[in-house]
Amino acid sequence: MTKPLVAIRSVSKSFGEFQALKNVTLDIRPGEVMCLIGASGSGKTTLLRCINQLAAIDSGGIWLDGELLGVREQGGRLHRLTEREIGRQRLKTGMVFQRFNLFPHKTALENITEGPLQVQGRKPDEVRAEAIELLRRVGLSAKADSYPAQLSGGQQQRVAIARALAMKPMLLLFDEPTSALDPELVGEVLAVMKELARSGMTMMVVTHELGFAREVADRVVYMDQGAIVEQGRASDVLGAPREERTRAFLSAVI
């Protein structure tokens, strides 16, 4: 069996009284496309944010590419990493947000080159060439000099995917990437994601697009109230769910 790219072990996370994650354990293998489904408040977004360390976990551990995230074990105790070290760990993951979060004062091209230039300190010529190639890959070659406000929601989200790819991450995290889009714009974003999945990118996708999950996902994970209820092949979980809660959720969604 191959070594997992992400290993999540007994992770819990609370926001005040609310327990968002309860003892979650999960592996993501390299090249795998995993879709996380579940009602809002079920903890799927929180799980993504913990992997990207936008939220810090309360207990348990997450390993990415063999490296423990956020903390260091020393003398039998865990010590939090510095902001700089966490920033370095974040470079291994890319994040695509529900509301795109493009930088509105920068053009599409500048949004993509910002990280490689400012954070990774790479050569401007090389970064620019790669950014242009990424824009071509998401079908937006003509929009390099457009500002986000001049783009449709679907175009913005495709630029956001290109921005995440520009950092050459090992893992891409998608937090409901099509939930803020008008229905007619969902398809173009899903098409880009399908192409990425085919290219072998490891992806974790929080989504309500069950059609996408059925077609693309290697594994579907159903979460409820901060815990994993059921997981397995897309055709099994979506087509023949074993758990009553999964069945109830699926019948409510479809």
Partner: peptide
């Protein structure tokens, strides 16, 4: 968050 996500 977007800035943090690209390692800033």
């Amino acid at each position: 968050e977007a800035a943090q996500a690209i390692g800033m």
